[in-house]
Design a protein around this nucleic acid. Structure first.
Lengths: 188, 188
DNA sequence: GACTCTCTGTACCGATCGGTACAATGTCTC
DNA sequence: GAGACATTGTACCGATCGGTACAGAGAGTC
């Protein structure tokens, strides 16, 4: 099928939402067939490796999205103010202002982490490295840049958790706004 | 049995570790019987409401621990520096410097949140209120105190996620240290 | 020792789990 | 239209899920 690539992307999107909503262990094949509109036959034809392959490909797709829209721009940017603002805007968009949960963070907390530790670690590692490289170019020392980048990732993850726990998306928005200021503050 | 209360505490501790390690949906009765050393008979005798009651009581016990060791001290403290340090030390101890995951945050992210939304929301709400009341006494305005307290909770949660994702407990320690400084900084 | 009453191990329940087998249906090529 | 091959729905698999039933062990009272 020529359209297979496109369809696979659609399926992965639907799979991502199921995993986000129910977690890796909670996403049963019944839920998956409902969300994707695909029977087991199609599902196992597309993903012979079963649920684990599905999750791995979903994580890879998320990684690809961030690589394209977040990481790469950070690496090539020359204007820190603009680059940070773009990153924050991208994050806000991706997480639907706090309504959407971070699947990577979710997997990290659960027992499925061991199966996907490389993907999980790599995602955050590349994000931190990309952001730190921008901050270094803006005048921070290497270690200052690393610390601030780490702070940024952790703030985003924490804001997602707290916003969801308290059912208040404004928490996420406030956190992103504070974070922007902290990232762009002059070196201490 | 006179020892029943004590034993129940032991059981709840074991239950907590199972839920932490496998999540609510991932914690099967098989894992639970292994972790607690209790057969299904005893389990359902102790918790007629089944898994949901177990989780609810575990959350309540966690809440009780924080109420005693974190929230209450914050409310009655008069020395902000000392109170913040004590809170941070308590948090560091409870989460084993980042090795232990926050069950409340974990539940918040998963689909079990709907069943425990009050417990989850209440836990964070009371923490934030207690911390904000201390910060207000230290000279901050009401809204400044609320914002800083929110920042503290979110930082702790995010640090737990990131530390686990990257398998690096030092991230948690660094975050707590930075957070202490931020909480005690003079009003902007 | 007989009577309670709390507690527990075991067998069992229907439902659902992730996964497989396979026949039937499409769709494309020639 | 014949043949090849990708795609799908459905029936089915053993294992495990959360939960129930219940007989009996254990401990306390008289």
């Amino acid at each position: 099928m020529l359209t297979r690539g496109v369809e696979r992307g659609e399926v992965l999107r639907a799979l991502g939402e199921v995993f986000r909503a129910h977690g890796y262990e909670g996403a049963s094949l019944t839920l998956i067939t409902e969300a994707t509109g695909l029977g087991k036959g199609s599902l196992y034809h597309l993903f012979p490796g079963g649920k684990e392959q599905m999750a791995a490909e979903v994580l890879a797709e998320i990684d690809g999205w961030f690589e394209l829209h977040i990481f790469a721009p950070l690496r090539i940017a020359d204007d820190p103010t603009r680059a940070v603002a773009a990153m924050i805007a991208g994050v806000d968009q991706y997480f639907h202002s706090g309504d959407r949960v971070c699947l990577v963070g979710m997997v990290a907390l659960g027992s499925a982490r061991d199966s996907f530790s490389e993907a999980v670690d790599g995602y955050f590692a590349r994000w931190q490295t990309a952001l730190a490289s921008l901050l270094r170019r803006s005048g921070l020392t290497n270690s200052q840049a690393q610390r601030r980048a780490e702070d940024a990732l952790l703030t985003i993850q924490g804001a997602l958790v707290l916003a969801r726990a308290r059912s208040d998306a404004k928490i996420f928005r406030r956190a992103l706004s504070d974070l922007t200021a902290r990232l762009l503050a002059p070196p201490a």
